[in-house]
Design a protein around this nucleic acid. Structure first.
Lengths: 173, 173
DNA sequence: TATTTGATAATACAGTTGTATTAAATAAAG
DNA sequence: CTTTATTTAATACAACTGTATTATCAAATA
């Protein structure tokens, strides 16, 4: 989180984990294995967080807002998963394996959200589901980018307002 | 563009530019100078591109769409500026000097666009200028991120639709 | 012509990188 | 108790990194 992907050398990782280079190597033969595994962990963490929030008993709008906010990097690095996700996504461009948005926990969450809004008949009648899914996804990535860089001011409230505005633009009444 | 910021070693840069390490060093004492200067070039390029499009005689909506599209990475790396901007923005997190969105040519362009819409009285009466500026900015960063990673399919049309939808959500009629 | 500017080539230093190997020590499990 | 699993420590190699210094050379400039 401090140095970005450049800081993720096998030696740094071992030191940060409090183990030796040999011990790390015992479980991960190559650096690539280590990184891929960590990315899976991050997405699993976000998927779990999303699933939990999905089951909370709240009005749809509030639940969705809470959910989306939980997928953005938080000011205090309490839960690094959301920030790490963006970092992994960015670096996938240069990491051989390429990027598959179908494996992105955030994209999955947004698909679920949009699908739910559809089923609850809360969407305006002229909205294109696939297009609006991608649009909300782009907005979330942009906000994540902003959250990554802008660690000052009252971001949460601002993001909430933006997401609320966005929801208003696709939801009825 | 091929290797990302990791590929920007002084040796690689010199080789790619077709000059020697010594020649590069003649103009840029440190790597940081080189990088900062290049970032300025990128923003200058985008600002110029924006200014030109601003003067074209077109209906506001079409002009704005053309403008926003011009600020997104293009499939063929014909003009690398837009892609480079995103890369610089991301890396500013780890590059000491920090990120200032007031120096971001894309943010400036969006501020101008919103200001114009305001002056032409094209905005819905309940829109908050500052909030919508940041929202469009986030959307653009998200789309740029997508364009960076997704080099397949018919992106331009999809982005155009999304941007059109977004404009509809803040503009009258 | 003399001088400054721009560029090349070669070399150097100290540091980091991923990967690899070895021998030894410790812990867990059968 | 003995075997297996885990971990340490140390060392190694080749490659790359930013920065630095030299001596040499061509071209533009004064």
């Amino acid at each position: 989180m401090k140095e970005g992907m450049d800081g993720v050398s096998v030696r740094n990782t071992a030191k940060e984990a409090g183990i030796t280079l040999g011990a790390l190597r015992y479980y991960f033969t190559t650096q690539e294995e280590l990184i891929n595994y960590t990315e899976q962990l991050v997405h699993a963490s976000l998927a779990e967080k999303t699933a939990e929030l999905f089951m909370v008993d709240l009005p749809p709008r509030e639940k969705i807002l809470k959910l989306l906010n939980g997928l953005l990097p938080d000011r205090d690095g309490k839960d690094p998963a959301a920030e790490a996700r963006l970092i992994f996504k960015y670096h996938s461009k240069y990491l051989g394996s390429g990027y598959k948005k179908s494996e992105d926990s955030v994209y999955q969450a947004i698909k679920s959200i949009m699908s739910n809004l559809m089923m609850l008949n809360m969407l305006k009648k002229d909205v294109e589901l696939s297009l609006e899914t991608d649009r909300l996804y782009a907005l979330m990535d942009g906000l994540a980018m902003d959250a990554l860089l802008e660690r000052t001011g009252d971001r949460p409230r601002k993001y909430n307002l933006m997401l609320e505005t966005h929801l208003n633009s696709i939801c009825k009444e």
